[in-house]
Design a protein around this nucleic acid. Structure first.
Length: 311
DNA sequence: CGCTTTTGACCCGCGC
DNA sequence: GCGCGGGTCAAAAGCG
């Protein structure tokens, strides 16, 4: 009795089993491949979607950055115009002294740009002296952080200088060194180097004028991990570099609109360079050919067996 | 020997 | 006019 029932129960099972076994191996393999393809398609779709989303967001951020930069430039131009107007208004008919006092004022202006990193001697002096920005030569400042042990007043900026004087000034116990460009008198550039009153490890180099010759020592000028922040408009004078392995912060002030519009190529700050890179990246991401090629490259790399366009 | 650095003297503008 | 202070000159010294 039990045998019949057992037989009845086992027979269909064997049939099913046989049927299952009769499925060709190829089909099974194809099924597996099909499943992989489906999951790959889903994954690729997700990646493409994510890629599109990221590139759209990137585009949006870049546009925001562009607008911000444009606003910044417009604002800066307005500030420059404003300061120039003020300078003209308050400019007294005097020469060399004014030049110097204005260079001091430039320092005060730079404080505004640089934040609190420099001295806080703004208020009293600047309130006593009228602001005067219009001077003959272009003035720029370079702040160079030096080693504590380094007591020299040498700022390696890629140009060759000849020292022609040294003076102890009233407001700073450290002597101020006066340099002329070695190409003088054909090159009228001068610089003054003095240690910062508050932080004696910082050298303050004040450049006057523009070099009319190329940099002599590019390697020296650009070597090291110096960090230069180039603020303000203006061109030219060699403002790369520092004296060594520490750092430098540079701030400059254009002396006139003429200077600001000088045709010489500008030495861009890292920030500006980064902006340019982002602009290039933006233009690339905006290029449908590039994005298509990128997507193809990515998909080709992840799923190299799908070259026949079978998705 | 030629170039650079040092350093005291001198010049000059500014404030009083 | 005088003194002060920053900037420049130039002779002497230093250096390669």
């Amino acid at each position: 009795m039990d045998h019949t029932s057992l037989d009845l129960n086992t027979k269909p099972l064997r049939l099913i089993d046989d049927a299952c076994l009769s499925i060709p191996r190829e089909l099974e393999n194809n099924l597996t491949e099909l499943r992989m393809e489906i999951s790959a398609k889903q994954e690729t779709g997700a990646i493409l979607e994510e890629s599109n989303r990221v590139s759209a967001e990137n585009k949006r951020l870049t546009e925001m950055l562009t607008v911000m930069c444009e606003n910044y430039n417009a604002l800066r131009n307005q500030l420059t115009d404003y300061m120039n107007k003020n300078g003209e208004k308050e400019h007294s008919p005097s020469k060399k002294r004014k030049f110097e006092s204005s260079s001091n004022n430039n320092g005060n202006i730079n404080l505004g740009i640089l934040g609190n990193s420099m001295s806080s001697s703004t208020d009293e002096e600047s309130s006593k002296k009228p602001r005067e920005e219009v001077v003959k030569a272009k003035i720029s400042r370079l702040y160079v952080k030096t080693e504590g042990s380094d007591s020299s007043l040498i700022v390696k900026d890629g140009y060759q200088w000849r020292k022609y004087g040294q003076k102890v000034t009233r407001d700073n116990p450290c002597p101020r060194a006066y340099f002329k460009c070695s190409f003088a008198p054909s090159c009228p550039v001068k610089k003054k180097v003095q240690r910062d009153v508050e932080d004696q490890s910082v050298l303050v180099a004040i450049y006057e004028g523009e070099h009319n010759h190329p940099q002599l020592n590019q390697m020296e000028a650009t070597s090291g991990s110096s960090r230069i922040l180039n603020f303000g408009s203006g061109t030219g004078a060699a403002l790369l570099g520092s004296s060594g392995p520490t750092g430098a912060v540079e701030a400059r002030k254009s002396k006139s609109n003429v200077d600001a519009k000088s045709p010489q190529p500008r030495i861009e700050s890292p920030e500006v360079k980064q902006f340019l890179v982002e602009q290039m990246a933006s233009s690339l991401t905006k290029d449908p050919n590039f994005t298509a090629a990128l997507a193809a490259a990515i998909s080709g790399r992840i799923f190299p067996h799908n070259h026949n366009g079978k998705w």
